[in-house]
Amino acid sequence: MPKSFLIDTSRCTACRGCQIACKEWHGLPANKTKQYGWGSHQNPQDLNPNNYKLVRFTERLDENGVVRWNFFPDQCRHCVEPPCKDMADTVVEGAILHDKETGAVLYTDKTRLLSEDDFASVRDACPYNIPRRDPETGLVSKCTMCNDRVHAGMLPACVKSCPTGAMNFGERDEMLTLANRRLAKVRKTFPEAMLVDPADVNVIYLIADKPEFFGEYVVAENAPSMGRRQLLAKAGRPFQGLFDHLT
């Protein structure tokens, strides 16, 4: 049984301990960011090769005139059957690995062998728009689940840093139990609360508002419980790069 995360956004204070802890553990350099033309606390503006983890901030005034400020610590979902791997396997075997023991989906140095178009296909295969490519090195990267730490019996760096219990990590069945327990509680206040694609991913989000109020790629388009093939098909983006290689 693989490991899973439960990310209970109803407890997230967006302190960004996780975002920074991730960078510090992985030794990722900082990006030059700006508020100009942006005007948001969400910085950097998007996931990138130097940020495997990004807290997204989304705000609105709800129908009752109440401010809803939603925080979404975004990262790879470590899919149970990762479509990105299926896609990459058709091009470069071993570019993406799946550690069945932990459930971690791992991008290796071989991702450099993926062309820009190949990468676009891999990214498009991801229902959550996670993979990012360094244009200079060609390396494709994202959250590693801190697989090194997990194998050493440690918590992922982001989970370790979380003060409020928003980030949780453990055996998949334990996390699913916790997720359902938390959901039942949160629904008393927010009836629309839901778990995001729990059957398909090992990074399960609990959200207390509609998915569109957390960001663009919060849920897979046809979740829940779609199979790998379906997911691939439904990802439905041009398989241009892939076909180039196949022909």
Binding site: A14, C15, R16, Q19, I20, K23, E24, P29, A30, N31, K32, T33, K34, Q35, Y36, G39, H41, N43, P44
Partner: peptide, 25 residues
């Protein structure tokens, strides 16, 4: 702000923190 400390003299010089809150708003 969370990511900087008071006048920012220390934290602005930590690139990972400046990345998260880069400019006066």
């Amino acid at each position: 702000v969370t990511e900087h400390w008071c006048g920012g003299g220390e934290t602005r010089n930590v690139p990972n923190l400046l990345e998260a809150e880069p400019q006066l708003y």
